[in-house]
Amino acid sequence: MKKYIHYFEVIYNTQLNTDYYLLKLFTEEDLPAIFPAQFVEVRIDGAPNTFLRRPISIHDVNYEKNTITLLIRIAGEGTAILSSIKSGEYLNLIYPLGNSFTMPDSDRILLIGGGCGVAPMLYAAKYFMQFGITPTFLLGYRNKESILRPEKFAKYGNVFYTTEDGSFGEKGNVLNHSLLNNEEISFEKIYACGPEPMLKALSDLAISRKIECEVSLENLMACGIGACLCCVQNTDQGHKCVCTEGPVFNVKNLIW
């Protein structure tokens, strides 16, 4: 799949809560086909101490309006600079990068996101919906205040929540949710993105219950195009680049 370097104009940059920003970006170029869990590498201009691009997953795509949307969590200096960008300014992106979630055979699918890991799940649901598939979401947050874009997610499927303090949805993390602990509810396939401990625990659960499970990983990377070999993940076929051979892996192939 061909990769592009394009400039995007910032349409808006909205603060969602203390840690998260929503960036909507427009390009005059035609958008290439974008698949769920693919990501962009954003160049951070004007950062005194960082110079590598930042890999950010694609949260939403609008082909009619030639826009893509990114959900940004402030994790360090690079993302802090991104959070301060204003509408009308430009960002340089390399995209679309990485492989993607594979198509399911039925709509008995569960999209699980933990924290920032909810980002790719919105576009995944929108993408699957074109094929008549309505997914179920299970989204985990710290507390009620940290829940991101609940109305938007509700447009694309049934949404279930967990919060660590129990202030919304079920108390605990996504692994504790009754959806995953009820023998009468079965899913054909689980797609997940989030912190590594969550993904590992989910992987164990999926393997023991013989449910297909794909996870999108967020390993540190430099180039995003398979040149630096920094973002490798150990698999049953040796080291694989998360940027080009991932970010999506079937959990049965992962050694972690």
Binding site: N49, T50, F51, L52, N219, L220, M221, A222, C228, L229, C230, C231, V232, Q233, N234, G238, H239
Partner: peptide
């Protein structure tokens, strides 16, 4: 060669460290 285990990269001021190990 499989190279070194992850993590193999760290960004530093105006530079980066790598420890790919000739994969």
């Amino acid at each position: 060669r499989e190279g070194n285990p992850y993590p193999r990269m760290a960004e530093t001021a105006s530079g980066m460290l790598n420890a790919v190990g000739l994969q």
